[in-house]
Amino acid sequence: MPKAAVLLINFNATSLIPIIEKKLYQNFNLQMHQFIPNIDLTEIYSEVRDQYYSTKLLEYSLKYYNDYDKILSLTDFDLFVPVLTFVFGEAQLNGKAAVVSAHRLYPEFYGLPQNEELFLSRLIKEINHELGHTYGLRHCQNFECVMHSSSNVDEIDIKSENFCDRCKEKII
């Protein structure tokens, strides 16, 4: 079975890890190996933006965890790429590494009451989505498919956590 390294980088919702493990197995047939890497954040952090540079995070994970078939980094840090104000995550299209930020998935971020169920469903959707890119999937026009692009949290809420049939075929 292919192996996935899951790197927890200042990721606090650790109680959800068993569910993530199950989903990685169900959706991608991946066996999870969990790590809390000792990572030098100065390279990744931008003081001006008070955010973390997601592409650099991907590069870091690829450098140290390259023996794994897939590398998924999870973080509560807010991520950015230089030209955009923020990103929910980033992945190598047709590659190995993906990163998901939980920062903007918490309802509290939007001033709404805590809601673990909603948060979990968003997190699983983003994990499926970014990992989907590593399997070569691009954004899907199907509004319900998890590969539908979402540039705000409501668009994440609109889609389901599942891949449509056409996208699913490409993962297997």
């Binding site: 790429v81 230089p82 030209v83 955009l84 299209l93 890119h133 691009r138 954004h139 692009s149």
Partner: peptide
């Protein structure tokens, strides 16, 4: 980064 972003959209 823009190239990557648009590529994901196909």
């Amino acid at each position: 980064s823009l190239t990557h972003w648009f590529e994901e959209d196909g």
